[in-house]
Computed example of a mutant assay.
Amino acid sequence: MDKHRLATLVKSWFTGFDKPLALVVFLLFGMGIVALYSASIDMPGRLEDQLRNILLSFAVMWLIANLPTQTLMRVAVPLYTVGVALLIAVAMFGLIRKGARRWLNVGIVVQPSEILKIAVPLTLAWYFQMREGVIRWFDYLVAAVLLAVPVGLIAKQPDLGTALLVLAAGLYIIYFAGLSWRLIIPVISLVGVAAILLISFQTQLCAPGVDWPVLHGYQQHRVCTLLDPTSDPLGKGFHTIQSIIAIGSGGLTGKGWLQGTQTHLEFIPEKHTDFIFAVFSEEFGLLGNCVLLLLYALLVLRGFYIAAQAPSLFSRLLAGSITMIFFTYAFVNMGMVSGILPVVGVPLPLLSYGGTALVTLGMGIGILMNISRQKRFVQS
């Protein structure tokens, strides 16, 4: 085979890739590898494992980007059904680790809640596509039930972080499908009032012996620690205090790659996963963070562009929701590391070490590329 034919063959393999989106993802992966090398320099094998995870994520991304469009709609309901069934199986006889029942042994150990991060928006987008042109208030109620089932099962494990991400993914679909602001504004107002009351009566609500309804004890403790990290400086507050010190000590240009003292003196907990943003901030400073934020902004803007150009309601809703999932991941992770949100165990997308989460995000990128390919085929 001559070089020209080989080049043509290779090019055909990547026709499903959206080039601007692929470039941003490539740069984020590159920054993640740089940060992870520093964060895991005392953890042999972590970098190699992450490179393997990236290759697996890339393979999933490529596969989904090149699937026929209708396949995404066909797999929506089966994937949702399997995901919910696995969550029920987890509740019945799942593995317990660190006090939470989140995993299932099916030959390999899996975390079924990760499936729902993609299955929920897929299913809700499919549902509203089926109801296009005749969407009524009852359809939003049905969508709410479809969303509440997996969110409730995940929250019961307990896994509040994943439950909130799945909830957000579903709510984005419902909002983009045309939910009236008359229903949204009261909910936002209620949350705002609750936050003000929580801050105003922090001393009384966080006093020893006071139990909050709905939330587990450790979740209540996380919220109280967020309001005052110094109330438990050697416990739950330790994470927040040390990460804030790391971010602040980075200054404008950072201490330099591999030179982070908070990182390499083991003050930052979970530095290769949930708190990798603190590692990055300490070593690359405000300027590095600006570049990172710019890349996430470009990813979100490209995702919204793909959603706006999508040829069907299903594609528009799905692309919009997937895009907002990336925004939510980044916002929540940076917020909790910076001390403005509770620590809920949400990774920084495409930077944090991890296998399942990275593959899930690769599926999301693949869906965006698939929808972008639809647009190009329609235009041609």
Rank of each mutant, 00 (worst) to 15 (best):
T8N: 15
T8H: 14
L9I: 11
D18I: 10
K19T: 13
P20W: 04
L23K: 14
F26R: 14
V34E: 02
V34W: 12
S40A: 09
N53H: 15
L55C: 15
S57M: 13
L67N: 10
T71Y: 14
M73D: 13
Y80T: 00
Y80S: 06
L86D: 06
K98H: 15
A100L: 11
I108E: 08
I108L: 13
P112V: 04
P112H: 07
E114F: 03
E114W: 05
K117T: 02
K117C: 01
I118M: 00
I118T: 02
I118G: 00
A119Q: 05
A125D: 03
R131V: 08
F138G: 15
V145W: 06
A148E: 13
V149C: 03
V151P: 08
T162K: 03
A168Q: 11
A168N: 11
G170M: 00
F176Y: 05
A177E: 00
A177T: 01
G178Y: 06
W181E: 15
W181D: 15
R182I: 10
S189T: 14
S189V: 15
S189C: 15
I196P: 13
I196C: 14
I196W: 15
L198H: 10
G209I: 02
V210T: 01
W212P: 02
H216G: 05
G217N: 09
R222A: 07
V223G: 07
T225N: 03
P229T: 00
T230W: 10
D232A: 00
D232K: 02
D232W: 08
P233W: 06
L234I: 13
K236I: 09
G237C: 05
H239Q: 12
Q242G: 03
S243R: 08
I244R: 05
G248N: 03
G251S: 04
L252G: 00
G254E: 04
K255Y: 08
G256D: 12
L258T: 12
G260Q: 08
Q262L: 14
T263I: 08
T263H: 05
L265D: 04
E270N: 10
F280E: 11
F280R: 14
S281K: 12
E283V: 00
F284M: 12
G285M: 10
G285F: 13
L286F: 14
L287H: 11
G288D: 08
L294S: 06
A297P: 11
A297Y: 14
L298I: 03
L299N: 13
R302D: 06
Y305F: 03
I306N: 09
A308R: 10
P311W: 09
P311G: 05
L317Q: 00
A319S: 06
G320K: 03
I322L: 01
V332S: 13
I340Y: 03
L348D: 15
G355H: 05
T356A: 09
M363P: 01
G364A: 08
I367W: 06
I367A: 00
M369R: 07
M369L: 08
S372N: 04
R373D: 12
Q374Y: 02
K375I: 07
V378M: 12
Q379S: 12
S380V: 11
